[in-house]
């Protein structure tokens, strides 16, 4: 079933001479793990940020769970965001708060503001946070300051923060770009495992084609803000990638690691 749909989605940043994203028609089904690939500046981040409206698209329409969400503002937009997890390249944790507090942050859109502002969380929520941390191998870290953790651990905390939302969709913008290759693989494996267990749809921007090939069910190729192709991973070929990168970047890409 279709979870997310974009129709003619476009984005031109104010003052920019040309659009960062042009007429993207895209559909994601429940439980799919989809990679978005393309060279730097292709519009991958712009695409993802339009989907939960961290930036407001200037063209086209957005649909989530069959309902149009294009022009949502205020409370309805906050409500939409509670159902979509977002994972950032730099984790975006509050380093001075504990790991546990950072995970609970994921619930801020869904719990009464007065209580959360006073730092009051239900036993159930705290238990769920602990359970998620344990599931991601971080049970000993919950009381540590978030900035005391390694990069891979911090990204797992941000995954837990997304999962505690009980989201239908997770958007991940280059989640492993700041990690060394073994850690990157470990984090992606974890993300894919929990997404499959919970039936969560994942849209993930990946700079490295080999990571996309290894983990994604489907790959969306972007170039200069335009969707070039959208194929099941098994159907992609060397030439698919040459098409979006303009040269055979696969070898280059590996060398960069």
């Amino acid at each position: 079933m279709s979870l997310l749909k974009t129709v003619g989605l476009g984005m031109t940043y104010s003052g920019a001479p040309q659009p960062a994203l042009t007429s993207v028609n895209f559909e994601a089904n429940e439980g799919e793990f989809i990679a978005v690939v393309g060279p730097s500046g292709a519009g991958k981040s712009t695409f993802l940020r339009c989907l939960n409206q961290l930036i407001t698209p200037t063209e086209g329409q957005l649909f989530f769970e069959g309902e149009e969400t294009t022009h949502l503002k205020g409370e309805p937009l906050r409500h939409l965001r509670t159902r979509i997890g977002f994972i950032f390249q730099d984790y975006n944790l509050q380093g001075r708060l504990s790991v546990l507090q950072n995970v609970l942050t994921g619930l801020l859109g869904q719990r009464p503001a007065l209580q959360t502002t006073l730092g009051i969380w239900s036993k159930k929520d705290v238990e769920k946070a602990h359970w998620l941390l344990r599931d991601l191998g971080l049970s000993d870290q919950s009381q540590k300051r978030a900035d005391a953790l390694s990069g891979g651990q911090q990204q797992r905390v941000s995954i837990a923060r997304a999962l505690i939302q009980s989201p239908r969709l997770i958007l991940a913008d280059e989640p492993v770009a700041s990690l060394d290759p073994p850690t990157a693989h470990a984090v992606l494996k974890d993300l894919k495992r929990v997404a499959k267990e919970e039936g969560i749809t994942v849209l993930i921007n990946l700079h490295h084609i080999d990571l996309a090939l290894e983990y994604a069910d489907r790959i969306l190729g972007l170039r200069d803000g335009v969707k070039v192709w959208d194929q099941p991973t098994s159907e992609t070929s060397e030439s698919s990638f040459t098409e979006i990168y303009g040269r055979n970047l696969k070898a280059d890409d590996l060398a960069k690691e």
């Binding site: 939960n52 961290l54 937009l77 906050r78 409500h79 939409l80 965001r81 509670t82 979509i84 997890g85 977002f86 950032f88 730099d90 975006n92 944790l93 509050q94 380093g95 708060l97 507090q101 942050t105 994921g106 619930l107 801020l108 859109g109 869904q110 503001a113 959360t116 502002t117 941000s158 923060r161 939302q165």
Partner: peptide, 19 residues
């Protein structure tokens, strides 16, 4: 960056400030 994360989970202004 942490503020953006709270926006992304649907947090209110007061939550962005507090957390």
């Amino acid at each position: 960056k942490p503020m953006e994360a709270v926006v992304a989970v649907g947090g209110r202004r007061v939550s962005i400030f507090r957390y």
